[in-house]
Simulated scan of single mutants.
Amino acid sequence: MTIFPVTVPASLVSATGLEPEAGDWHRAVRHAVGTPDGETYVLSGLWRQTRYGGVDDGRDFICQLITRHGPDGDTRTTAVITHEAPGGAGPTSTVRRSESLTLLPDGTLVLSGKPGNTHLFTPELDRLLAAWHMDDRPSWSDEPQTDDPFAATVSVTPGGRLLCLTSEHRLENWGYPRGNLIAVSEPGDHLAPGHSPSCGRLRVAASCGVRKVPSEMSRIRQPAASAIWNTAVRAS
Score class of each variant (00 low, 15 high):
residue 168 E to H: 08
residue 52 Y to L: 13
residue 104 L to H: 11
residue 16 T to W: 06
residue 105 P to D: 14
residue 234 R to M: 09
residue 233 V to W: 10
residue 55 V to Q: 14
residue 198 S to Y: 03
residue 230 N to P: 00
residue 26 H to N: 11
residue 68 R to Y: 06
residue 30 R to M: 10
residue 56 D to E: 15
residue 110 V to E: 08
residue 62 I to S: 14
residue 6 V to Y: 09
residue 125 L to Y: 08
residue 29 V to R: 15
residue 161 R to A: 06
residue 177 P to E: 11
residue 88 G to Y: 12
residue 33 V to G: 00
residue 234 R to W: 07
residue 83 H to R: 12
residue 132 W to V: 00
residue 28 A to G: 05
residue 10 A to N: 13
residue 83 H to W: 15
residue 85 A to Y: 06
residue 236 S to K: 06
residue 86 P to L: 12
residue 128 L to Y: 08
residue 72 D to V: 00
residue 178 R to Y: 06
residue 65 L to W: 06
residue 45 G to Y: 03
residue 81 I to D: 02
residue 11 S to L: 05
residue 207 S to K: 10
residue 36 P to V: 11
residue 191 L to D: 09
residue 95 V to I: 15
residue 78 T to G: 02
residue 179 G to P: 04
residue 107 G to L: 05
residue 118 T to N: 14
residue 29 V to L: 11
residue 230 N to Q: 15
residue 194 G to A: 10
residue 48 R to E: 03
residue 172 E to P: 00
residue 149 P to I: 08
residue 165 L to H: 04
residue 69 H to A: 06
residue 25 W to K: 02
residue 163 L to W: 13
residue 165 L to K: 02
residue 131 A to F: 04
residue 198 S to W: 02
residue 69 H to G: 05
residue 182 I to E: 00
residue 165 L to A: 07
residue 140 W to P: 00
residue 43 L to C: 03
residue 47 W to S: 14
residue 171 L to V: 15
residue 120 L to C: 05
residue 3 I to K: 13
residue 194 G to E: 07
residue 93 S to M: 08
residue 111 L to C: 11
residue 149 P to C: 10
residue 100 S to G: 10
residue 20 P to N: 09
residue 53 G to L: 10
residue 177 P to I: 04
residue 227 A to I: 01
residue 102 T to Q: 08
residue 213 V to W: 02
residue 188 G to C: 06
residue 30 R to H: 06
residue 73 G to H: 13
residue 91 P to L: 15
residue 207 S to I: 03
residue 179 G to W: 05
residue 203 R to Y: 00
residue 41 Y to C: 09
residue 58 G to K: 12
residue 230 N to Y: 07
residue 109 L to T: 14
residue 65 L to P: 09
residue 157 T to W: 03
residue 35 T to V: 05
residue 231 T to I: 04
residue 108 T to I: 13
residue 203 R to P: 00
residue 199 C to F: 04
residue 102 T to E: 11
residue 200 G to S: 14
residue 142 D to Q: 08
residue 123 P to Q: 04
residue 182 I to L: 06
residue 204 V to Y: 01
residue 134 M to G: 07
residue 110 V to R: 09
residue 44 S to Q: 13
residue 90 G to R: 12
residue 61 F to T: 08
residue 107 G to V: 07
residue 130 A to G: 07
residue 209 G to E: 03
residue 20 P to R: 14
residue 97 R to I: 02
residue 207 S to V: 05
residue 172 E to I: 05
residue 105 P to V: 08
residue 55 V to E: 15
residue 11 S to W: 00
residue 166 T to P: 01
residue 228 I to S: 01
residue 204 V to S: 03
residue 205 A to T: 01
residue 170 R to K: 12
residue 133 H to C: 04
residue 138 P to C: 09
residue 8 V to T: 08
